[in-house]
């Protein structure tokens, strides 16, 4: 069989193992699912009436942002999972087997899609309860969810690399906060770009997080004629810009992580 086919077959075996663990340690899952619910409720009720968006209810505007932020935070899980594996004896078993050298990473990033799917589902339900509605076509909405998952998958590979370099779960959790909070806040996730001051606004306009959020927002029909996207390329073509970033991230971090994994332990 081809090398790629083996990477997928072995990755599937590793992913299955990770998914069994999701079921066996449900405490983790509970926290993963509670934090997005908390975010939806906090933002909807605390900021709900203080941030006016022309033509759109803030709660509808908010949901795409919450989705994006949560799936990006979900990547922290990938890093923590890899770091935990690297500390344990099981990694020696994997490394002594004639399996694909990328399978541990392929399997981990794949099984974390399940986490993100679950948290998106929980968030969507919570959103519906506080008044969020999908105003466009269902097909577009599905496209929006798929884009969120694809972007989250790419981001998982960044955190997988971090998990290999910093093999400590605590450090990863703290370090990722420092990076992910600014990245998801200096964007159109919770406030309109127009509200941001000059340099921050430029950063936000080219922030891939903004592109993913805007693309999802448009896919869910949570935008308005009265509130057009800023006139920059990234915001005019958010899907293309987001996918461009997905490609760049994967092209850099997949080979980087696999090489790092091979050399680990030496």
């Amino acid at each position: 069989m081809h090398r790629l086919a083996w990477a997928l077959a072995d990755g599937h075996v590793v992913a299955k193992r990770n998914i069994i663990k999701i079921v066996r340690v449900p405490e983790v899952l509970v926290f993963v699912l509670i934090s997005p619910i908390m975010f939806v409720l906090l933002f909807a009720y605390v900021f709900g009436d203080s941030i006016p968006i022309p033509g759109v209810d803030y709660r509808e505007f908010l949901m795409a942002g919450i989705f994006t932020q949560t799936v990006i935070f979900g990547a922290t899980f990938t890093g923590a999972g890899i770091a935990e594996d690297m500390q344990k004896g099981i990694i020696d078993r994997f490394r002594s087997l004639p399996m694909s050298r990328s399978a541990v990473l392929v399997g981990r990033t794949a099984s974390d899609i399940v986490y993100n799917l679950l948290s998106i589902a929980i968030m969507a339900l919570t959103g519906l309860l506080v008044g969020w509605r999908i105003r466009g076509s269902w097909l577009d909405a599905v496209g929006g969810f798929v884009l969120l998952l694809v972007f989250a998958y790419a981001f998982s590979w960044i955190m997988a690399y971090v998990g290999l370099v910093v093999p400590s779960v605590e450090v990863i959790n703290n370090a990722s906060f420092i990076v992910i909070f600014p990245l998801t806040f200096i964007a159109n996730t919770f406030v309109p770009l127009e509200n941001l001051p000059g340099p921050l606004r430029t950063f936000a306009e080219w922030n891939p997080v903004s592109a993913v959020t805007l693309a999802a927002r448009e896919a869910f029909g949570n935008t308005s004629e009265a509130f057009p996207a800023p006139d920059v390329w990234s915001m005019r073509h958010p899907v293309a810009y987001a996918l461009l970033w997905v490609g760049i991230i994967l092209a850099i971090f997949v080979p980087l992580s696999v090489r790092r994994y091979r050399r680990s332990g030496s």
């Binding site: 193992r17 069994i20 663990k21 066996r24 004896g89 099981i90 990694i91 020696d92 078993r93 002594s96």
Partner: peptide, 16 residues
């Protein structure tokens, strides 16, 4: 492909 290894620390997954 040809060897078996068992180490000082059991290389097994606790949750499985």
């Amino acid at each position: 492909e040809r060897i078996g290894v068992s180490g000082q620390y059991a290389a097994v997954d606790e949750h499985l």
